[in-house]
Computed example of a mutant assay.
Amino acid sequence: MQNHNLPTEQLKNFGIINDDHTFSRKLSEDDIQKFLQGYTIVADNDKNRATFQLTEDNTQLKIIFLERDRNLSQILDNSKEKIQYSDIKELANKLTSLEKKGFVYDNETGKTVEFDFIKNANELTAIIADKKDPDELSRYKNELLKLKSYLQDKIDQYPEIAKEIVNDMNIVSREISTLSNIAARENQLTEGVDSQIQLNVNDRDMYEDANRNREKQEGESEDMEIRRGFRR
């Protein structure tokens, strides 16, 4: 890895480094070290997103421009009320790749965290499942189904990258299966409660059996009182 042969002009153009070749104050020391090690810097502006990554022993700057379906500020505001879902497309790429994101507001930190449907699948599913909200589970599952449909279409269009797409589809299918299992368990619990209430309240035979048992117990109780009376 080389740090002395950075693509300085490009880095200056995008505000990553200053004219004196120092890094932008917007980047922490940790951000800078990760960037020099090949990690990606992400810059958002309304609907636009750009990613920057050093390649070729830090001599080249790989830049990807993307477009979000909604303004980021709107997503962040709405995430305080409920989880937000957003699509990001790389329009310059002939393959027109799509990324689907989930935005979850953390009440403890007061910050909204972005989760990728593929890279952070386990974490996002666990967070949503933990909320135990059937409507949210349904919303999330619908977004996963949309992504699966998109990936299926992409396989048909670009068989040369089918292996990578199938890997993503397997992740999405796994999460859909997990949600289906959660929903099935919730339905079983609900049906069990409903069934118990139905029997207790509306089952005529059980009601009459219970009534007869009550009358029998009352009769036995009266007999006991009579017998106790004879012993006095």
Rank of each mutant, 00 (worst) to 15 (best):
M1K: 03
Q37C: 01
L27N: 04
E114W: 03
I176G: 08
R231H: 15
K80F: 04
V172S: 01
I155E: 01
R70T: 07
K146P: 04
V172P: 02
K101Q: 09
Q74N: 11
F52K: 04
A162E: 05
F65V: 13
K47S: 10
L66T: 08
K146F: 10
I155C: 12
E225Q: 07
I64H: 04
D209F: 06
Q37W: 00
T22C: 09
P134K: 02
D77E: 13
Q10A: 11
L95I: 03
L6I: 01
N213K: 07
P159S: 03
D77C: 11
Y105E: 05
Q152F: 03
G38W: 01
K132G: 05
K132W: 02
A92F: 11
D133E: 06
E9T: 15
S177N: 15
R68L: 11
I127H: 04
Q217L: 13
I165N: 02
L124Q: 07
I32H: 00
N170V: 10
Q53I: 04
N58F: 01
V172T: 14
A162W: 00
A183T: 14
N213G: 14
L91K: 10
N13D: 15
S97C: 09
K146L: 14
T112W: 03
K100Y: 04
L91N: 06
S79Y: 01
Q74Y: 12
Y140T: 04
K94G: 01
D194T: 15
N142M: 13
T112V: 15
L137V: 09
T125C: 08
D205M: 06
E136Q: 08
G102D: 03
E164L: 12
L151P: 00
L76M: 06
S97I: 06
K101P: 00
K80G: 02
E81G: 07
R214E: 11
D57A: 14
D44E: 12
K111F: 07
A129K: 12
I118M: 09
E191R: 11
Q198M: 13
I197K: 14
M1S: 02
K80L: 06
T51D: 06
D77P: 02
E114S: 03
N48A: 14
D69Y: 07
R70F: 08
I88R: 00
E186A: 12
A50R: 14
N58E: 02
R232L: 13
D77K: 15
L36R: 01
K101H: 14
L98G: 00
D106N: 14
N18V: 06
E9V: 15
G110H: 07
L95D: 04
Q152P: 03
